[in-house]
Amino acid sequence: MTRRARQGALGLALVLPPLFLLAFLVVLPAVTAVVDTLTPAGGGSGPTLANYAQVLATRTVRADIGFTIAVTLVSVAAVFALSYPLALYLRFSRGRVARVLGVLFVVPLFVPVVIASFAMITFLVNHGFVSTIAYHLGTRTFPRLVYNATGITLAQVWVNIPFAVLILGAGLQAIDDALIDGARDVGAGAVRTFVSIILPLNATPTMITLTLLFIGVFGSFTIPYLVGGNAPAMLGVTMTNYLTQYLRRTESVTMAVLAFLIAAVVGAVYVASVSRRERGTA
């Protein structure tokens, strides 16, 4: 064997185990599940969309899907609105505050999500920390902050900020200081620099952050299960309930395929924006 052929064979051998793992543990079960949802319940012939029609006909499931999309969009917007300024601040500021913030913002990454959820509940619940402070400041009626969409959003924001700041920050690092200085020399203010220089150059990391955040929050289970209300529920909780509590496997898999389709649309946007970048720099 030539040296090149040997190296090629070695590369193939190294890639095969994870490929097999992916094929047999992820791809094959997923394909089997999708085929399952397309087979009619009575065992008739030919693919049918009856399962999807039945699932979408259930009012609570439709409400859950709508609720999930709404909570995801609000959470992603909130995380983005908080992380971009923080990333900009960390990129362009020197000084002690920036250094301290630079360490603090990563902390939620190291806290397990279950613990973070329980901490958030204790913090925000009626008779909890926030409520007690508000009481001492004079407020007597306290809005419910946990066991509803607000609780889910607050917890998701807390958990996802480090990830968003890290990716946006990495994109901002790639922007040369010379470009910023050049813009300032020509007379551009901070806002103009941001809109014309930083935003376009940071477009790909922004797309990546938004799409990964969406997929992450959309499919989450732990936070909605612990911090969410009884109804409507996020899709992750609903799917789990249909499978383990209501013993309805087909409905659960159908919902999983629907969730996958929604996430796939967002994933397509991610792939398109990344490959556009590859083509651009090639």
Partner: peptide
């Protein structure tokens, strides 16, 4: 199993 599902649909939701 149906009790749980129907409770969720008819009472909670």
């Amino acid at each position: 199993a149906d009790l749980k599902r129907l409770w969720h649909d008819r009472v909670a939701a």
